[in-house]
């Protein structure tokens, strides 16, 4: 197992955000963390890379408790792609090179530079190498953030809504890249998502969070309309299309249009 989340509970002041969250991820698995706004999806990701400290429970990465690792050690194993990346006045190359920071000594080695070059190629950012990241589109900036997480050479990738605010083309590009990275590099990945159809199309597994706890979990094909209705309070139908589940919301009584 690359990731073991064991009974994680998180409190903000006295309010309980997460309770008894547990799941596990193997190499080559992509997990979608699903649930309504404010249910604690981002909080869960932050507990996993020890950015936040859970009140109870533990998170093991490669069998080691993240709370006992120092920040740099975690960064060598866990790559985190935040929902928002600030665009500074840095070239794409330098912005990606930043991902080597957990491995860097006083000097940047040639190996660091070559890995950065490789990650840039991997994300097809080659033609933009020397462009300043404050001149990139949202989709390009998101690719830079993912490339930066890749040069960390992590075992586990955490992505907070990697496709939010991207157009259809870029959403699919990003999800494909994540899928390929997970398949080819023996890493595990967890991403939070709002688009259920895309999440289930690209992820192997899902968990639904409801009121801070895992309401349902399974392989992507095992999703049921009852789960979605219970978590989001919206009645849905689920159709299989080319082997993938597609969730279609039904309009509720009283809100039907004539």
């Amino acid at each position: 197992m690359i990731l073991d989340v064991i009974g994680v509970e998180f409190r903000y002041d006295s309010r309980r955000i997460l309770r008894d969250v547990r799941f596990a991820l193997k190499a080559g698995e992509l997990l979608a963390i699903l649930g309504p706004n404010g249910v604690g999806k981002t909080t869960l990701l932050k507990c996993i890379n020890a950015n936040l400290k859970p009140a109870a429970g533990s998170v093991l990465v490669d069998g080691c408790d993240v709370l006992r690792m120092d920040a740099m050690d975690i960064a060598r194993r866990v790559g985190y792609v935040a929902q928002r990346t600030e665009a500074a006045r840095l070239t794409v190359f330098d912005a990606v090179l930043l991902g080597r920071r957990p491995h860097l000594g006083w000097r940047v080695s040639d190996q660091d530079l070559r890995l950065t070059g490789a990650a840039i190629e991997r994300l097809s950012l080659g033609p933009l190498t020397m462009r300043s990241i404050d001149r990139l589109s949202g989709g390009e900036l998101q690719k830079v953030a993912i490339a930066r997480a890749l040069v960390q050479e992590p075992r586990l990738l955490l992505l907070d809504e990697p496709t939010s605010s991207l157009d259809l083309r870029n959403q699919i590009d990003i999800l494909k890249i994540i899928r390929q990275v997970v398949d080819q590099h023996e890493v595990a990945a967890a991403m939070t998502m709002h688009d259920l159809n895309k999440a289930l199309r690209w992820a192997d597994k899902f968990i639904f969070l409801k009121e801070g706890a895992v309401y349902a979990a399974g392989r992507s094909r095992e999703v049921t309309s009852e789960m979605v209705a219970a978590v989001y309070g919206v009645p849905v139908e689920i159709h299989l299309h080319r082997g993938f589940p597609w969730i279609i919301p039904l309009e509720q009584n009283g809100s039907e249009r004539n």
Binding site: Y80, Q83, T85, E86, R101
Partner: peptide, 20 residues
């Protein structure tokens, strides 16, 4: 210098890169 570069990319990203 690397920590300041990381903070430029946003607090969350910097924390993900092991910067306190």
């Amino acid at each position: 210098r690397w920590d300041y570069n990381a903070i430029d990319a946003g607090d969350e990203t910097a924390k993900g890169l092991g910067v306190r």
